[in-house]
Design a binder for these strands. Structure first.
Lengths: 232, 232
DNA sequence: AATCCAAGATTGTTCAACAATATTGACGAA
DNA sequence: TTCGTCAATATTGTTGAACAATCTTGGATT
């Protein structure tokens, strides 16, 4: 039956619980982009009924973590070129806006600096995942400058989608190391109160990152179609 | 093979249909903020089962059109002071950002001017609802400058919440007429390519609108609590 | 009037079924 | 072989009834 980890799952929480489990597994790369989430096996595996699983699905669909094709099923989202473009359209708007018009308290500045230091340490120790984490944390913290929960939520969704993009790339190249310095410069400018310059630099940064990511993604798709040709 | 040419695949759409019906009724003010959406009566009225209605609920919850209180039910959202503040936090970020960095084609500019003209006509003919519509259309069109579907979606949600705010005010004062001219000025500056000034003016506009709306809302809440005191 | 408690009502979840659509695999024709 | 056709099968979408957990209501007691 329903075996909640420690009995915390009281009445009225299992749907959210299931959604959270799937969210975590997808974020961890345990469920890879494009893979199908069939209802009956998942119901059996999670110990819930189809109805509650389907309800969890609809929340995940609304978060665009998962894609539902009518009468076909739901699949782990596998963002492609278009989705990456959309991701950067969003980031190019809200991140510089946060830099320009967000509330910059000394506390928050300190938090940003802590994060860039973490990124530098990660680069020094050569840990790509730690660098990716620190990078995402930094840009999330930038959006937090807006003070808006909705924008923060949107950014969280976008960053989750970015993780999916990385998961869908077989070869995860060192995508972050050259951006650590730009993050350092960003925080430096923020500390100096040069918001205009910070915003412009951030926009340039995002343009470059998008371009590089699209190149990697295009190569990935070529590789994949090449394999398909070879196989068929 | 299935021929989706005319057959609208009746099978897989009732959940979305129900969600859309409720969305429309709420937007029209037919279901007022704070009112409870009981499951059984609604199921009977809409002719669907509880399970599908509940699925529609979860999508509406994710759109924050509706609030779910565990074991108590779902209610039409009734935005208060905090929600209004959050609305304007969002608008103060993404609207000026769209003005500063959006893509300004002559086509789009023409669309904006058409909308402000509509607003002016509405003011001349004294139609408050038409003015409100035109105002929302204009600000939606501004966000459309970003080219981002996600931001557009967020803005749509925000504007829907604004409608709920107006619906929750018993006395709907002429909130829009003094802002028509500012919208005219905004479009004028955009046409002149003065984005910086347009963005700053827009931010000032949003500050004022928020302040005025909060005054009205505070008065409304005072009125309501006063009635409660008188009644109890 | 205030508090407590049991009966009723409502929500959260499960189960079993059926309808509609998709997928599969076998079969036959060019 | 290779391609389409078609029936058999599997999966999704929706329904209705049931039960457990929680909230609400009304009255009894003090």
């Amino acid at each position: 039956m329903n075996t909640p980890a420690d009995g915390t799952a009281e009445h009225a929480h299992t749907t959210a619980w299931i959604a959270s489990v799937l969210r975590t597994r997808i974020a961890a790369g345990e469920l890879t982009p494009g893979s199908k989430l069939s209802e009956e096996p998942l119901c059996a595996a999670l110990g819930v009924s189809r109805n509650t699983l389907r309800q969890a699905f609809t929340t995940l669909v609304s978060e665009s973590i998962v894609t539902r094709i009518p009468n076909r099923g739901v699949f782990v989202a596998s963002p492609g070129v278009d989705e990456v473009r959309e991701i950067y359209r969003v980031r190019r708007m809200i991140e510089p806006a946060a830099v320009l018009w967000g509330e910059l308290t000394p506390q928050v500045l300190e938090g940003l600096e802590t994060i860039v230091q973490r990124a530098q340490q990660a680069r020094d120790s050569g840990s790509v995942p730690a660098m990716a984490d620190a990078n995402q944390a930094l840009h999330g913290a930038v959006v937090a400058l807006t003070g808006s929960a909705s924008l923060q939520e949107l950014m969280d969704r976008v960053l989750a989608e970015m993780r999916l993009v990385f998961h869908s790339m077989a070869s995860a190249p060192d995508f972050h190391s050259h951006y650590v310095d730009r993050n350092v410069a960003l925080v430096k400018r923020l500390r100096a109160g040069e918001r205009q310059e910070a915003a412009e630099g951030l926009r340039a940064y995002l343009d470059e990152a998008e371009a590089e990511l699209l190149v990697h993604l295009g190569a990935e798709q070529d590789r994949r179609s090449g394999m398909r040709q070879r196989a068929g």
